Amino acid sequence: MAQFAVRATLALAKRTTGAAFSAPAATRSYATEASPEAYGYYSDPLEHATGREKKMLIARLAGDDRYEPKIYYSAAASTKEKPNLGPSHFSDIIVGCMSEPDSGHTNFMTIRKGTPKRC
């Protein structure tokens, strides 16, 4: 029934204007880069960070690099009485050890505070 009403409306429009009734051609716009003025700038990560993440970001901005990953080389003459120490703010630390200078892989281990391990 609705299809008949549409056909009747189109036929009436064709009779009154005397020309064929057609819809305008659709055009597609091209994608462009969004401007910050139109959509706003990226928010500051410091505003959304909480807890440890915020503490780390504030320390990094202050120039404190204690949370950055570092490479520590083991001492040549380390013993059980004088071990290599790995600094950490937590009770666990993940350490990567290359057992031999020519090895092509790294052995990773988790070390807990107070329990020494040997590579």
Rank of each mutant, 00 (worst) to 15 (best):
M1L: 04
M1F: 12
M1A: 05
M1D: 08
A2Q: 13
Q3N: 06
Q3C: 09
F4S: 01
A5M: 13
A5V: 15
V6R: 06
V6S: 08
V6M: 02
R7N: 08
A8Q: 14
T9L: 14
T9A: 15
T9K: 05
L10T: 01
L10K: 07
A11G: 13
L12V: 07
A13N: 04
A13M: 06
A13L: 14
A13S: 09
A13H: 05
K14S: 12
K14W: 09
R15A: 02
R15M: 03
R15C: 04
T16S: 06
T16W: 01
T16P: 00
G18W: 06
G18M: 09
G18K: 02
G18Y: 04
G18Q: 04
G18H: 04
A19H: 10
A19P: 00
A20W: 00
F21Y: 06
F21M: 13
S22F: 08
A23M: 15
P24R: 10
P24T: 12
P24A: 04
P24D: 02
P24E: 04
A25S: 06
A25Q: 13
A25W: 14
A25N: 11
A26T: 07
T27E: 11
T27M: 03
T27K: 08
T27N: 06
R28V: 14
Y30E: 09
Y30D: 11
Y30F: 12
Y30G: 06
A31Q: 11
A31L: 11
A31P: 00
A31K: 06
A31W: 03
T32Y: 01
T32D: 05
E33Y: 10
A34R: 00
A34P: 03
A34Q: 02
S35T: 15
S35W: 05
S35I: 09
P36G: 01
P36S: 07
P36M: 01
P36C: 01
P36T: 00
P36W: 13
P36V: 01
E37T: 13
E37Y: 03
E37G: 08
A38T: 11
Y39L: 12
Y41C: 04
Y41V: 15
Y41D: 12
Y41S: 14
Y41E: 15
Y41H: 08
Y41W: 13
Y42W: 10
Y42D: 06
S43L: 04
S43Y: 00
S43A: 10
D44E: 08
D44W: 00
D44K: 01
D44C: 03
P45G: 07
P45T: 01
P45A: 07
P45K: 02
L46G: 02
L46C: 09
L46K: 09
L46Y: 02
